[in-house]
Amino acid sequence: MSMTSDQAPLILVVDDDDAMRGSVAFLFASVGLDSRQFKSAEEFLAARDALPKDRPGCLLLDVRMPGMSGLELQRRLNEEGFGLPMLMVSGHGDIPMAVAALKGGAEDFIEKPYRDQHLLDAVHLAIRKSRERLSAGSERSAVVERFQRLTRREREVLMGVLAGKQNKTIAQGLDISIKTVEVHRHTGMEKMAAGSVAELSRMILLAGILVEAD
């Protein structure tokens, strides 16, 4: 299933405190947010493959837990390219812990006890960022798919265009006529759904496709 940003968000909560999990589940449900609760990092990792990959949301993660800590789980998820924004929560927060969490890419570090509205505001900001990531991911996948449909010659011509070469130079380099370059350029731009070289360049950068300068 392709990733989309318009589905209902899902909040994943990892905390060893039973009361806290129940409290945030009730809070999220009261504002129409779906959530799933996990009592440990290990339980979350065991269930992660079965979680939906196409829903926006965030991970609400307690820092101090028995077994794998929240910071350790954060590092592991970062190494594995976990896509959801993370919010770190702790009842024993200190500056070094907060710095470590934020350096690890956490969107926010929230100390217990917190105001419900503070948590909801942070969650909604994280959901917005998640939607943006999903949208960018969908667009990136579409660009890559269109690029893969190009013929080898169309790719060569478009790469030459993006490298700033004139049609004549591209024709000489590929040992084809200028007219043939123009045809491949036109069909390639159509297949990529690019209305201009600037738009094509943005697509290629988004998709992470390398353009050789020479």
Results as ranks from 00 to 15, higher is better:
1 M>D: 09
2 S>K: 08
3 M>T: 10
3 M>S: 05
5 S>T: 06
6 D>P: 06
6 D>A: 04
7 Q>H: 08
8 A>W: 08
8 A>R: 12
9 P>V: 04
10 L>I: 08
13 V>T: 10
13 V>L: 11
15 D>K: 02
16 D>H: 04
17 D>H: 04
25 A>M: 03
30 S>G: 01
31 V>W: 07
32 G>Q: 06
33 L>Q: 02
36 R>M: 01
36 R>V: 12
39 K>D: 13
41 A>F: 11
41 A>H: 03
44 F>Q: 02
46 A>E: 13
50 A>I: 01
54 D>M: 09
54 D>F: 12
57 G>S: 03
58 C>K: 04
59 L>E: 09
62 D>S: 10
67 G>T: 00
70 G>W: 02
71 L>G: 00
73 L>S: 04
74 Q>L: 11
77 L>R: 02
78 N>E: 08
82 F>R: 01
84 L>V: 12
88 M>I: 09
90 S>G: 11
90 S>A: 02
92 H>D: 14
94 D>P: 09
95 I>D: 09
96 P>V: 02
99 V>A: 12
102 L>Q: 02
103 K>F: 08
104 G>S: 08
105 G>H: 05
106 A>G: 10
111 E>S: 14
112 K>W: 09
113 P>I: 12
114 Y>D: 08
115 R>G: 15
120 L>T: 03
121 D>Q: 13
122 A>E: 03
122 A>L: 01
128 R>L: 05
130 S>V: 00
130 S>D: 01
134 L>P: 03
138 S>H: 15
139 E>R: 14
140 R>T: 03
143 V>I: 07
143 V>L: 05
143 V>K: 00
143 V>E: 01
145 E>N: 15
153 R>Q: 15
156 E>Y: 02
156 E>W: 05
158 L>A: 03
160 G>T: 05
161 V>C: 02
163 A>D: 00
165 K>L: 05
166 Q>E: 13
168 K>S: 14
168 K>G: 13
168 K>R: 13
169 T>S: 14
170 I>F: 01
170 I>S: 04
172 Q>P: 12
174 L>Y: 04
175 D>Y: 05
177 S>T: 13
178 I>Y: 05
178 I>H: 14
180 T>I: 10
180 T>F: 11
183 V>P: 10
190 E>S: 12
190 E>I: 14
192 M>P: 00
194 A>C: 10
195 G>H: 08
195 G>C: 09
196 S>D: 09
200 L>M: 09
203 M>S: 14
205 L>A: 11
206 L>P: 03
207 A>D: 05
208 G>H: 07
208 G>L: 01
211 V>W: 07
212 E>Y: 11
212 E>H: 08
213 A>R: 15
214 D>P: 03
